[in-house]
Simulated assay, not measured.
Amino acid sequence: MARVRYFAAAAERAGRNDEDRSEITLGALRDALSRERPGLGAILPKCAVLVDGARVADATEIGPDVTVDILPPFAGG
Rank of each mutant, 00 (worst) to 15 (best):
Arg55Gln: 14
Pro73Trp: 00
Gly76Gln: 08
Gly39Lys: 05
Val4Trp: 13
Ala9Gly: 04
Leu29Trp: 10
Arg3Thr: 15
Val4Tyr: 14
Ala28Gln: 15
Arg35Ser: 09
Ile24Met: 12
Glu19Pro: 02
Pro64Asn: 15
Phe7Ile: 05
Gly39Cys: 02
Asp52Asn: 15
Ala54Arg: 14
Phe74Ala: 08
Asp20Gly: 07
Ala28His: 09
Pro45Asp: 11
Val68Gly: 02
Ala48Asn: 06
Val68Pro: 02
Glu61Ala: 14
Asp65Ala: 14
Pro73Gly: 03
Leu71Ala: 06
Ala57His: 14
Gly27Pro: 03
Asp65Lys: 14
Ala11Gln: 08
Ala9Lys: 11
Glu12Asp: 13
Val49Met: 12
Ala42Phe: 00
Asp69His: 09
Cys47Trp: 01
Glu12His: 11
Glu36Arg: 11
Pro45Leu: 02
Ala75Asp: 00
Arg3Asn: 11
Ile62Gln: 02
Lys46Gln: 13
Asp31Gln: 07
Arg16Cys: 14
Arg16Asp: 02
Thr67Tyr: 10
Asp52Leu: 06
Pro73Glu: 08
Ala28Ile: 07
Gly77Ile: 00
Leu29Ile: 04
Val68Ile: 15
Ala11Met: 03
Asp20Val: 11
Cys47Tyr: 05
Arg16Thr: 13
Ala48Lys: 09
Pro38Val: 03
Phe7Pro: 08
Glu19His: 09
Pro45Cys: 10
Asp65Ile: 03
Ala10Arg: 03
Ala75Asn: 01
Ala11Tyr: 02
Gly27Ser: 08
Asp52Phe: 09
Tyr6Met: 05
Leu26Tyr: 09
Gly77Asn: 05
Asp18Ile: 01
Gly63Met: 06
Ile62Cys: 03
Val4Phe: 09
Asp18Trp: 12
Pro38Asn: 05
Val51Phe: 02
Ala42Tyr: 00
Lys46Glu: 14
Ser22Asn: 11
Leu50Ser: 04
Asn17Ala: 13
Leu50Arg: 04
Thr25Glu: 07
Gly39Leu: 01
Ala28Pro: 08
Lys46Phe: 06
Asp20Ser: 08
Leu26Lys: 00
Asp20Gln: 13
Arg55Phe: 12
Leu40Thr: 05
Tyr6Glu: 00
Ala8His: 12
Asp58Cys: 10
Ala48Met: 10
Val68Arg: 02
Arg13Asn: 09
Leu50Asp: 06
Ile62Asp: 09
Arg3Val: 10
Thr60Lys: 10
Val49Lys: 02
Val56Thr: 15
Arg55His: 13
Asp31His: 07
Thr25Trp: 12
Gly53Glu: 05
Asp65Phe: 07
Pro38Ser: 00
Ala42Gly: 07
